[in-house]
């Protein structure tokens, strides 16, 4: 699926395929017991990202030009990196075993104590909003900064466009 997305020259079709890809990964998260993540990925990855990309495409040319074809250097770099990473996986713990190191640290504490501490059954929500709330606050800062960035980038264009009055203004929509 991902390969199809990247091979597609028509950017509109690529964006649509990317939305399907997000939806597929969301269902994968649901299978892997991460219901909250699946919901977020379906709403944010498949929904908001797609809308953002479509807005960007409405302001940009739709077709990707035929470039240099295959980029051999990039392919070699990617293959070497991939081979190194595959080699590195032999040191990683096997999938789904209950005694993996990741399950030994704070996770048992969360699972055993969070109902007493916070009183809601959804452990993900209580960790997100209570134990790691500073993290979530930082996330909000990031989104705020990104919003300011987008506003500056797109708002500055319009202001400059207006100053030379004789220049025709192309159809542009805000975000």
């Amino acid at each position: 699926m991902a390969v199809a997305v990247l091979r597609m020259r028509d950017l509109f079709a690529a964006v649509m395929l990317f939305a399907i890809y997000s939806l597929v990964s969301a269902s994968l998260f649901a299978v892997l017991d991460a219901g909250d993540v699946a919901l977020t990925e379906a709403a944010v990855g498949a929904g908001i990202s797609t809308i953002l990309m479509l807005v960007a495409l409405s302001l940009a040319p739709r077709h990707e030009d035929r470039g240099r074809g295959r980029n051999l250097t990039a392919l070699v770099v990617v293959l070497v990196t991939g081979a190194t990473l595959v080699y590195a996986t032999w040191d990683l713990p096997p999938f789904g075993a209950a005694d993996n190191p990741i399950h030994q640290h704070v996770a048992p504490y969360y699972l055993e104590e969070s109902y007493k501490d916070i009183g809601i059954p959804n452990v993900v929500a209580s960790v997100l909003a209570s134990y790691r709330s500073i993290d979530t606050l930082g996330e909000v800062y990031v989104i705020f900064t990104a919003g300011i960035g987008v506003m500056m980038l797109l708002g500055a264009t319009r202001k400059r466009r207006r100053q030379p009055a004789d220049e025709p203004i192309e159809g542009e929509e805000g975000e």
């Binding site: 977020t40 990202s49 969360y110 900064t145 975000e175």
Partner: peptide, 21 residues
């Protein structure tokens, strides 16, 4: 394990912010 779920929830939203910028 709930901890990776929490981290990835944050990461998804941050990812969208990056995409927007």
């Amino acid at each position: 394990n709930p901890l990776p779920h929490v981290l990835i929830l944050t990461a998804i939203v941050v990812g969208v912010a990056t995409t927007a910028v």
